[in-house]
């Protein structure tokens, strides 16, 4: 590759590249980003501990354990890779990640991990097929409600993590401070927004895209639709017992601080989807 740009048609002003920053010093990066982002709100000051770049991606890849991932991935403290921000921005190629997994483990032991990579590819293929429909409902809701029954905007208590439900507020805090949350926590938040609060999935999806370092319209929006039931056979919902099962000691799952989520699946189904036939 050549290093400089020097030939321009006459009459055109040559754009100037930004002055390169020193390699060290994250403060300088943050300062630069603020300088070149005049539209950013003054109140937006949170920086994630997760760093961008190939070196950071390689550190995640070095810890990849496909077999352990397969057996623990649904647990919030499971052996997930945290590679998704790097895959989303193409810092690492998805086929290279797959090949690394197959170098470490057999195809059988790598299957759950590679299946999860395939979800991303699946969403991307759908996005490529219908790029201008990524904010539209793919199918009708299967919740007994119509789109008009759902709020358009995300309430402030959700956006700020002040719902009063301890587990939900904990997940939101992690989203806001790190820009990364476990996939299961994403499902809990999306289920809460769509079904407990009856808010349009689009509002929740946009909120995630603001904060998630790995947020991309395909995986994010279509996953929200999977939860909402506009791209699945039924709505995804959960109960407090499920959060407790998969979170271990990492999340406050006491009943007294999480009452709206407590109950059997049958009870919650009747409460959340009163227009549907009772769940047997």
């Amino acid at each position: 590759m050549v290093s400089l740009l020097d030939s321009l048609p006459p009459g055109l002003a040559k754009p100037c590249a930004l002055k390169r920053l020193e390699k060290s010093g994250r403060d300088k990066v943050v300062s630069r980003v603020k300088d070149i982002s005049p539209g950013l709100a003054d109140s937006d000051v949170i920086i994630s501990e997760i760093r961008g770049g190939r070196k950071a991606a390689d550190q995640c890849l070095a810890h990849l354990n496909p077999a352990k991932y397969g057996s623990t991935r649904n647990h919030l403290d499971g052996a997930v890779t945290r590679l998704s921000p790097y895959i989303r921005h193409g810092v690492v190629n998805i086929t290279d990640v797959r090949d690394t997994a197959l170098d470490i483990s057999s195809a059988k032991d790598s299957e759950k991990f590679i299946q999860q990579l395939s979800w991303r590819e699946y969403w991307q293929r759908l996005y490529k097929e219908f790029p201008r429909n990524i904010w539209q409902d793919v199918e009708p809701y299967k919740t007994g409600f119509s789109p008009d029954d759902y709020q358009d905007n995300l309430p402030r208590d959700i956006a700020e993590g002040r719902t009063g439900i301890a587990s939900i507020d904990g997940f939101i805090d992690e989203l806001l401070t790190t820009g990364y949350i476990h996939n299961h926590a994403r499902l809990y938040l999306a289920g809460y927004v769509c079904h407990w609060r009856r808010i349009k999935w689009q509002a929740g999806a946009a909120w995630f895209l603001t904060h998630l370092l790995d947020g991309d319209p395909a995986s994010n929006n279509l996953s929200w639709q999977w939860v909402a039931s506009t791209f699945s056979h039924k709505p995804y919902y959960f109960n407090l017992e499920n959060i407790a099962k998969f979170s271990g000691d990492t999340v406050d799952t006491r009943i007294e601080t999480n009452r709206p989520l407590a109950g059997t699946y049958e009870e919650l189904y009747a409460r959340l989807f009163p227009n549907l036939e009772p769940k047997k």
Binding site: L5, L40, I46, T210
Partner: peptide
């Protein structure tokens, strides 16, 4: 930055993206 504003990217997202680009040691234009 206009596109980042349109997408309502938070500061942490922008920092992450900038770090990825900066890491390549290629010219960055605004």
């Amino acid at each position: 930055t206009e596109e980042h504003d349109r997408r309502a990217y938070s500061l942490k997202r922008r920092v992450f993206i900038y770090e990825c680009a900066h890491d390549l040691d290629i010219p960055i234009y605004a």
